[in-house]
Design a protein around this nucleic acid. Sequence first.
DNA 1: GGATATTCCATAGTTTCCCATTGCCAGCCC
DNA 2: GGGCTGGCAATGGGAAACTATGGAATATCC
Lengths: 156, 156
Amino acid sequence: MTDESFLGNALNGIDAKGRLSVPASFREVLGARSDSRALILAPAERADCLVGYDSSYPAKVRAELEARFAGDYSNARDDHFRATFGAAERVPIDENGRIIVSSAMKGVGDFDRLALFWGMGDYFEVWNPLQFVARPNLDPRAIRIVQRLLDARGTA
Amino acid sequence: MTDESFLGNALNGIDAKGRLSVPASFREVLGARSDSRALILAPAERADCLVGYDSSYPAKVRAELEARFAGDYSNARDDHFRATFGAAERVPIDENGRIIVSSAMKGVGDFDRLALFWGMGDYFEVWNPLQFVARPNLDPRAIRIVQRLLDARGTA
DNA sequence: GGATATTCCATAGTTTCCCATTGCCAGCCC
DNA sequence: GGGCTGGCAATGGGAAACTATGGAATATCC
């Protein structure tokens, strides 16, 4: 079961083509959960970052939402589905373990040239590292870890 | 289970002949579900937009409606069936992945020159993007995504 | 015939694929 | 221990393939 949790973190570059390497350890977890050839990216609920799941996630959420809104034929139900599915993307992972970050997702996460992967157990987050370290109330040890990754890149 | 959920979005142009490209990712889902050479378009129940699904979906909708209106022999029930099935169209997808938006559907969705495809999991919606962003109570992140797409098209 | 629709081909901009390079870490030998 | 070596992870670049879209050519209808 330890295989199936997203742990740890990584700071990777986004190149001119929008390509971004998914950390090998996360790819392994993705493979253990469903299919390592793709992942799901979506805007996070409460922060300007992205969340990533394995590709079995949409089916799960669909079942969940359909149960929750059974018999509900309201606009609220529709808007909820809109926010859930239309704003998410299925992103294929190439032979080298990379994905391409669409411009839509770049906008949502306010990305520049770096992307920080952060394990969250059942899923993971992808941050602009500068937004991450600027976040108030976050554990200072976490911030120091990222600060060190940034320093190792030679980027202030 | 391959991915059979409609995820993500796309903003495509409607040309002078009423031609409209169906996003490749949606065509893939259509193919995985039934037939990628056609789709069903219908007026949405609660908004001035269209809903689209694969050709196997009407059967599912019928089952759903019959359950929802079981034992209901009202005019409302009949009107609902009229709106659902009579107003729907089976639209062929051409070699280049395009459909023709009939003038009837153009009226229903109040389309101009752009069409926004929006994934809803089990189906998808097609909007006039301006109507979409003007919609109250919709997740602001979804609206921002569309706003960015509109900006990328230049001020149209 | 004229207008409306349908099929076919052309193209520009991306995206995808493939291969090369770099750097890191582990293990190993001397 | 120091340095060699092999494997893997991350990244860069070029070329092929594909998407979205425009226009021309052909068919269809009144």
